[in-house]
Design a protein around this nucleic acid. Structure first.
Lengths: 118, 118
DNA sequence: CGCATCCCTTGACATATATCGAGGGAGCTC
DNA sequence: GAGCTCCCTCGATATATGTCAAGGGATGCG
């Protein structure tokens, strides 16, 4: 799809009928694909597992950067991807921002791929 | 991690402890990410829905190309991505190849992301 | 055999993206 | 205010990827 990149609001609702329930519309395919793309990176998978491990308290950029051996700029980039996909919840606490996983969003995405699973 | 691209055998087993079950190893993160990457494209989502709709019979490259308004070369590329990720089953029939979805593989991938779902 | 169909591979091109260094805004503590 | 920490944005760079046109191997049919 290099045919111009559509940018789309994903932070909102959770989208779409199941992929197995009939042919997907272009719009729905795009939305699902963009959310999956947000997850489709090794660093972001590790990031997600770290964020999940931190529970509802959340984790900060710095801590993740140290753990993953990456610069804060890079971690910020990845957190942005996940946040824009609606998979993270961020809460400010003074100068810090604590990121937690939005398990409902993750579940919704998963359910689009395999509705029979749940 | 553009620091060189690792290529990995994915057609095989289905991999990995759940992402929510603790911090993921580098190898597991890579495997999950690569499988997700195979799905993280609007065309491939539509492709998957078409293949799923065809059931166990399967669909041919040509039919998909016509449906998606893409060249057979492009469809071949996408089918390759999905196949290499172990998400498709291909059966030859004369000059044609029929592609069907491997629902077990899809389910396994989904379960890594949200084990509580199943 | 000759021809059509189906599928794949290759090469080229434009776009997308992961990473970093550098720099700066915002908040805290002294 | 001075200095520190945390986080982000921007610009640069290398890599990855989606698409097509062109061409060829395989199979099947007349």
């Amino acid at each position: 799809m290099p045919r111009s990149l559509p940018t789309i609001e994903l932070s909102g609702a959770l989208c779409c009928p199941p992929v197995a329930a009939g042919v997907v519309s272009d719009a729905d395919a795009l939305e699902v694909a963009l959310r999956l793309k947000a997850l489709a990176d090794p660093v972001r998978i590790k990031l997600l597992s770290l964020v999940l491990a931190a529970g509802s308290v959340g984790v900060r950029n710095v801590d993740l950067a140290r753990e993953l051996q990456l610069t804060d700029a890079t971690v910020s980039h990845h957190l942005g991807q996940l946040s824009r996909a609606g998979l993270l919840l961020a809460t400010r606490q003074g100068a810090s921002i604590y990121y937690a996983a939005d398990r409902r969003a993750l579940g919704a995405l998963v359910r689009v791929l395999d509705p029979e699973c749940c």
